[in-house]
Design a protein around this nucleic acid. Structure first.
Length: 481
RNA sequence: UCCCCGGUAGCUCAGCUGGUUAGAGCGGGUGACUGUUAAUCACUAGGUCGGCGGUUCGAAUCCGUCCCGGGGAGCCA
């Protein structure tokens, strides 16, 4: 009772005092109401008729709120006329129907409190004009104030929320797998070392090796390259689980689709085979796309207008269509029969090149393609061996313009096969003992995939560079901010 | 890591077959004008042409090298 009262009083106070730009523009605040709005100036235009127009953005939505500041405000001459792009303010005023075109509602300001002017407006980097993404990366602390990055931030949030929602509705548990790990999992790539040893004065063993027994964990440790192995243990108890968190690869990859630190989603599903996994991947992507379209209309409209004309239509089309599924062997045949000149000849036993993936998704199918059952030689040890042993039950979901967006497999659940394959790959049995245990105690068929969250965002927004869909990109030789 | 391309004003770029004082648009400042919409018009300030070395009477321009960035490839998500 007491709590309920307090809650409603707080709500009333908030609604009377402050409103977000989204609330005002969305019509949540009745015309005639007095509100306080707060945010950052996008542009200011002065009218000699006796007022200034200020476009205000607070990140709550794509649009800007127009404030009309009359000349009779006490601080009009000294302060209002000094407002430039980037300045912050708090405005009290009345929500009114706009007398101008271009917006239906605006704020007739009764007072404007300047919170922070822009020091040296001449050099403020964010101007009301188009900037190159390359430049904006050099001012990563200010780029959230741009239309594009604001939209990216909202879409990123909406996509993350949709991912959790999808799994929750389908009975999956979010499992927080460790970021620090001792296994160099899957040999999936170079890892970042985690250590508290004094690098200027390393402890040595008798044989002259670095003595990691002296290190914080008493052994060598790294940042995780995948939560998959750890989450499999939970899969074989909770049935349906997923991870969603940061992942680290110390690869010297300099491309538009690689980061040293990125976010990955890894569902793992028990009592499932490769086909179940392909269905999951498809349902999952469609759900996320539909939710983003539903909740980020303005932002998506902006991407469609300025970044990628197909941004909305291709997502809509995808939500309503079925993904193309084909075996790797079939994909190779299609490529060989395509008549296309490839730099690398498509050939069974060799992994698909970027140019091959592009042909399949952009020319042949014009849609996302699920390629399944890859040659054993080119895939990881934990993927389930198909009958005959030539292929494993692996799948990649390839998206037009992005390439591989999802990579997954049915896992090898048979103890004897797994241990044999680990030996073939020269893996340390001791390190993976716990992982093998899962096949020893109540093993079941299971499958899972990994989805690069930023790659998903690239596909959704149409932005071409993965560095423009993560707040602070980390790439080789580049970790400012 | 490899292959291409680039680095000129706060930003986006032009100038680059070597030749006086390096230009434009936007942004900033000043003024005019207007219920304005990335407003418009006029004036104005603003540059070690990425660093170093070389060729030359003379280098933003040519050569070497280093640094930084972008695109493509490989690896992958």
């Amino acid at each position: 009772m007491a709590l309920g009262c307090q809650f409603s009083i707080t709500r009333i106070l908030i609604s009377m005092q402050t409103a977000s730009v989204r609330q005002v523009l969305g019509g949540d605040i009745a015309a005639g109401s007095t509100v306080i709005v707060q945010g950052w100036v996008r542009t200011r235009r002065d009218s000699k008729a006796g007022f200034s127009f200020i476009h205000l953005n607070d990140g709550s939505c794509f649009g800007n709120l127009q404030l009309v500041a009359p000349r009779d405000l006490a601080n009009y001459e000294d302060e209002i006329l000094k407002l430039t792009s980037g300045a912050s303010l708090r405005c009290q005023g009345t929500v009114v129907e706009s007398k101008g075109r271009g917006q239906s509602l605006e704020i007739q300001a009764s007072s404007i409190e300047i919170l922070g002017l822009v020091d040296d407006p001449d050099t403020y980097p964010i101007q009301p004009k188009q900037h190159s993404f390359e430049f904006l990366r050099t001012v990563a602390h200010l780029r959230p104030r741009t239309n594009t990055f604001g939209a990216v931030t909202r879409v990123r949030h909406a996509a993350a929320r949709a991912i959790h929602e999808f799994f929750d509705q389908n009975g999956y548990y979010w499992v927080n797998t460790p970021i620090i790990t001792a296994s160099d999992a899957e040999g999936a790539g170079q890892m970042f070392r985690v250590s508290t040893l004094d690098m200027m004065n390393l402890p040595r063993t008798d044989s002259g090796q670095v003595d990691f027994g002296e290190d914080f964990f008493g052994r060598e440790t790294f940042l995780t390259v995948s939560g998959q192995l750890n989450v499999e243990a939970f899969c074989l108890a909770m049935s349906k689980v997923y991870t969603f968190g940061p992942t680290f690869r110390a690869e010297n990859s300099n491309t538009t689709r690689h980061l040293a630190e990125f976010w990955m989603v890894e569902p793992e599903l028990a009592f499932a085979d490769l086909k179940d996994l392909a269905t999951l991947a498809e349902d999952f992507l469609k759900f996320v796309f539909a939710r983003v379209l539903e909740r980020c209309g303005d932002d998506m409209a902006f991407f469609a207008e300025r970044i990628e004309p197909e941004a909305i239509s291709r997502l809509e089309g995808l939500v309503d269509s079925e993904f193309v599924r084909m075996d790797y062997a079939e994909a190779v045949k299609i490529l060989q029969a395509s008549g296309q000149k490839f730099e690398y000849k498509p050939e069974w036993g060799v992994d698909l090149q970027t140019e091959h993936e592009r042909y399949l998704t952009e020319k042949h199918c014009k849609a996302p393609v699920v390629v399944m059952n890859y040659p054993t030689e080119i895939k990881a040890f934990y993927m389930r061996l198909n009958d005959g042993g030539d292929t494993v039950a692996a799948l990649d979901v390839l998206a037009p313009g992005i390439g591989e967006i999802i990579g997954g497999s049915q896992r090898e659940e048979r103890l004897d096969v797994l241990t044999r394959r680990m030996a073939e790959h020269g893996l340390d049995a001791e390190t993976y003992k716990w992982f093998v245990d899962l096949r020893r105690y109540g093993s079941v068929p299971h499958a899972g995939f990994g989805l690069g969250f930023e790659r998903l965002l690239n596909y959704i927004t149409g932005l071409g560079n993965i560095r423009d869909v993560i707040p602070y990109p980390r790439t080789p030789g580049n970790a400012p901010f």
